[in-house]
Design a protein around this nucleic acid. Sequence first.
DNA 1: CCATTTTAGTTTCGTTTGAAACTGTTGCAA
DNA 2: TTGCAACAGTTTCAAACGAAACTAAAATGG
Lengths: 181, 181
Amino acid sequence: MPPARRSRTPSPSSSSGPADRPALHLTRFLPYRLSVLANTVSHTLAKLYEKRFGITIPEWRIIAVLGGGETMSAGEIAQRTAMDKVQVSRAISRMLESALILRESGDTDRRKALLTLTPKALAIYAEIVPMALTYEEEATDALSIDERAQLDTLLSKLQARADQLAARPAPVSAQAEPVEE
Amino acid sequence: MPPARRSRTPSPSSSSGPADRPALHLTRFLPYRLSVLANTVSHTLAKLYEKRFGITIPEWRIIAVLGGGETMSAGEIAQRTAMDKVQVSRAISRMLESALILRESGDTDRRKALLTLTPKALAIYAEIVPMALTYEEEATDALSIDERAQLDTLLSKLQARADQLAARPAPVSAQAEPVEE
DNA sequence: CCATTTTAGTTTCGTTTGAAACTGTTGCAA
DNA sequence: TTGCAACAGTTTCAAACGAAACTAAAATGG
């Protein structure tokens, strides 16, 4: 079937009629497409990581940011991985159990715990990074050099805008009023 | 700060040394970027939908595909929304409770239930679609016409490839062996 | 026909999630 | 100082999730 163009501005001339209602095709709707794509990709990688290393995506992210051997606090990890502190806290306790991470409380500030990867986790890092990069390469191997650059630009612009829109307080207009008209 | 280029192929000349290890910066890693972006967008929309209409994203998706007034089965909805049947089933039972959907069992095949939106849901549809399109417009308003076309192309290509990679059975090589060393 | 398999959808169960409450620690200000 | 607000991180609780088991109905085929 043909891609069925969306009718955002049906025609300035027409004054009414059912065709005037703006239509929405889910498969052309950006948030939907992003969600499905990100889901597909994450799910594939999650299975890969789980099968090979027995770790989850949050754990992988932590390994990714600590993989250089640095030490940082849970809060810093949260920032760098775009996860919230609850998620980080839980991932860390799993990693403590599986001896992937080392925690020692800082002496200057006993609230902050200093976290470092164990050699076991560093070994995973060494092996998982090429695996992740290979996946990324495969996912984009149908794209030209130009397209990859475009993708980079577009994702950055969209993320910046999405952050703005997320920060904006809910639009003043309609709030929990019953649907009228 | 400069975009910090990734060193995939550090230098063909060097034979060893710590700098040879492929590095990975999460913020440059496509799956991570997609996940964060999709999350930001979905979260913003979810709050919007919840505040204004008291519905969740799965419910919104169902409304979106039935919004034209069509009738279809749960399975068909699942296909069109890329949700699995469990998710659809649960969303439908919520919608039955809140009188957003009507279910009548088909006479030719009593396994399939025919689902239709109630007028209440159609009213939501009429109001939510412009809202969704406005969000989409705002999210992309920093993009040129060309860039929007590029985005469309890129998302389609990436999704197609991601689907292939997801369908592929896990790579033959390493499976659940412990990391040694 | 009856038995078996397939299909549609629901339920169950264990896990994951996110928001909010909570604990302990530090910084600040009266 | 001590009292209070801010901060780092954990726990709790209820909702949401996914995989697998389950129920019911239709299709298949012997």
